[in-house]
Simulated assay, not measured.
Amino acid sequence: MVTCKETRAVIIALHKKCFTGKDIAASKIAPKSTIYRIIKNFKESGSIVVNKASGSPRKSSKRQDRLLKLIQLRDRGTTSTVLSQEWQQAGVSASARTVSQRLLEDGLGSRRAAKKPLLSRKNIKDRLLFCKRYRDWTTEDWVKVIVSDESAFRFFGASGKKLIRRRQGERYHQSCVMPTVKHPETIHVWGCFSAKGVGSLTILPKNTAMNKEWYQHILREQLLPTIQEQFGDKQCLFQHDGEPCHKAKVITKWLREENIDILGPWPGNSLDLNPIENLWTNKNPQILTNSNH
């Protein structure tokens, strides 16, 4: 509310005579909020002139800002353009840029969505049971575990984004581009490791998918020597996920005959629980081709 200079002068005069804001508001000379604002401004600046805010006036109230936040939280993926259209229905005519600024004030910055496996109700239940089963394990317990996994490696190109530094006009310079091919050659590998170190690494032949026959061969030729090397005659636990070839009857029977105990049951769709994923981070096929394992 805009007040005239005479009204502001009366408010300040009453304030100087020790009248409270509530007492002054009782005279209905101005709304209580306006009276308090004038008194506050006088205490801070010593003037009865209320300084105007710099820049353009704010287009939305606090209540409208809260509404915008609720709309965004209802659907985190809604764009600023769509939000500005929905906000307009609430009486606020604002650009997508203004929407972004308001949300940023509330700590809702735009970020790239993190990727994680889609979990079913069964996955969630199994993960919870697994974590409860092993939550009291100590370091001494976990050093007895040998974990394993399979992964795919591309021979050409990279599966993700590559960051480079370039000058203006160098977008397509040979040193600044990442070559691509339609069907990059891919190999599949199996590996294992424990707290005692990495184990054997098996590279499957080209165009070969893992099946129960190959898996049994790998366990016999690679897992057993690794267990013997790292644990000797001491008991250990073997971890593998729930791939169909891992759960095949012939595999279950073979593991039982070899007296290999299994860590689990391993919850489905739980790559993030397997520490071996950290070893697959740098998927460099040159390292594999130069490996003696």
Rank of each mutant, 00 (worst) to 15 (best):
T3M: 07
K5W: 13
A9T: 13
H15T: 12
K17Q: 13
F19S: 07
D23G: 08
A26P: 04
P31D: 11
T34S: 06
I38R: 08
K40F: 03
E44T: 11
I48K: 05
V50D: 03
V50S: 05
A53F: 04
S54V: 09
S56C: 15
P57I: 12
K62E: 11
R66N: 12
L68T: 00
Q72G: 05
L73Q: 14
R74L: 02
G77N: 05
T78R: 11
S80H: 11
Q88C: 08
Q89P: 00
G91A: 05
S100E: 14
Q101V: 13
Q101L: 12
Q101M: 12
R102I: 12
G107N: 02
L108F: 10
G109R: 04
R111L: 02
R112W: 13
A114P: 02
P117T: 12
S120Y: 04
R121E: 07
K122M: 07
N123W: 00
N123Y: 01
I124G: 00
K125R: 09
L129F: 07
L129A: 15
L129Q: 14
L129K: 13
Y134F: 15
Y134D: 06
T139N: 11
T139I: 10
E140L: 10
V145E: 02
V147P: 01
R154H: 15
G160K: 14
R167P: 03
Q168H: 12
Y172Q: 08
H173D: 14
S175W: 09
M178A: 12
M178P: 00
K182Y: 09
G191F: 00
G191H: 02
F193R: 03
S194D: 01
V198S: 04
G199A: 01
G199C: 00
T202C: 10
I203F: 04
I203N: 02
T208P: 00
E213N: 09
W214E: 02
Y215A: 04
Y215G: 08
H217C: 08
E221L: 07
L223G: 13
T226V: 01
T226K: 00
E229A: 11
E229F: 03
Q230T: 03
Q230S: 06
Q230H: 14
F231I: 00
D241N: 03
G242K: 08
P244V: 12
P244G: 09
P244M: 10
C245Y: 09
A248C: 03
E257W: 05
P265T: 14
W266V: 04
G268V: 06
D272G: 12
D272F: 15
P275F: 02
N282E: 06
N284P: 04
Q286S: 15
L288G: 14
